[in-house]
């Protein structure tokens, strides 16, 4: 895995920042020559992660969400860091969509979208002066997902 391009964006933990995050990610991927479908899917996965942090992370408004984008020869890696409450998306079991539709539930689909788009997901939490959540996402160019 060789890294060819890298970019970082810092955003306030407010939902009106989501369009700016998506635009930054999309421009980075476009610059890397990545196709529109891959671009859309990765933007969506990052949007879902960030929206979760903003809405449920109980994060200090003065704090920032850091998003690091890496374009490698075979994949894109995204590292998202925040200082909100500890939350490992992989602790949420996969959603059975048949049951979901029967019960007419709503909400909770963001994690399922991430799971269906992303090939590898790794979560780490550390607690020093501040809590730090680090979520690493990898999507391969020749992914079997989506």
């Amino acid at each position: 895995m060789t890294m060819l391009l890298h970019s970082t964006i810092c955003a306030k933990p407010l939902v009106h920042e989501l369009p700016h995050i998506r635009q930054h990610v999309s421009q980075f991927l476009h610059k890397a020559g990545i196709d529109d479908a891959f671009n859309h899917d990765l933007c969506l996965a990052i949007d879902e992660v960030c929206a979760n942090i903003m809405l449920h992370g109980n994060i200090n408004a003065e704090s920032l969400i850091n998003i690091s984008l890496e374009y490698h020869d075979d994949c894109c890696r995204v590292i998202i860091e925040d200082n909100g409450v500890s939350f490992n998306p992989m602790d949420i079991p996969p959603t059975n969509m048949d049951d979901y539709f029967v019960n007419k539930q709503y909400g909770g689909l963001g994690i399922e979208i991430i799971r269906r788009i992303i090939d590898e997901m790794k979560y780490e939490h550390s607690q020093q002066q501040y809590p730090l959540n680090t979520l690493s996402l990898v999507k391969y160019f020749h992914s079997s997902r989506h």
Binding site: R22, L44, D47, E48, A51, K104, Q105, Y106, G107, L109, G110, E112, I113
Partner: peptide, 16 residues
């Protein structure tokens, strides 16, 4: 042009 889970959730909220 774009929809995320937040938009899908609104349709699910009201479909019943």
């Amino acid at each position: 042009s774009y929809i995320s889970s937040a938009g899908l959730g609104i349709f699910m909220k009201h479909v019943n």
